[in-house]
Amino acid sequence: MKNYLQLNLSLLYWILIAPFSGQFFKIAPIFRQMVFIGVRAAPMVALTAFSVGVTLAMQAAHSLQSLGAEMYIPDLVMITLLREMGPVLIAVIVIGRSGSAVAAELGTMKVSEEIEALEVMAINPVQYLVVPRFLAMLVMLPALTIFGNYIGILGGWAVCRFALDFNTAGYVMRALESADTWDLYSGMIKSVVFAWIVITIACNAGLNVEGGAEGVGQSTTASVVQALLAMLVTNAVLTGIFFFSA
């Protein structure tokens, strides 16, 4: 826990303070990480989001048809996706895929003395390794979430269009009407917070690995479990703040 707080403080230092004293972070490594964390996760995110969109629409149809309220299916798909399912599910994918990879990569570097070598070369591991991953995650998780939202809505449309008697224009109109910008923004705020949680937990786990390859495995698993729990609890808290306190 102490390590985790220290990591966060030193991250803030390298991102907010160091650039003003001439130590600006390099851009190229950030893009490399964005490709790894974000672009390569896109197919998985698309598949997940599409299935969720389809499932949501089917469940909504099931419940709403008995009330004769099929016209509200797009509303339900849209709001559930934007507010909850989008940010949470895509964070789950990114934790499983990129969070674990970052923890394992940094952990391997730790046990093979690479981190120590960096320090001895007077290269700060937080600046050199964590900052690019952090910034990449902070950009890519929200971006993936927006992308996933679109695909999810497409999934909902597929059900409405081909299984129910919606026409495309009707679906789109209904969906757009139901959601207001706050639904989108709240989801975006969530996914930025999740990005922070996921990447700091992963990096912290990696940098503090002890005990060889076995230690790397244990830390990686622990980081995935911790990130999932932290993310879900935070989601509940944020939903409470956003939609129950006003």
Binding site: E114, A117, A122
Partner: peptide, 20 residues
């Protein structure tokens, strides 16, 4: 310590090259 470290070099027993 970074200031001091700029003045010396270190070869690790394992080499400790960055694998990436």
């Amino acid at each position: 310590i970074e200031r001091v470290r700029l003045r010396f070099g270190m070869l690790f027993q394992s080499g400790a090259l960055l694998a990436s």
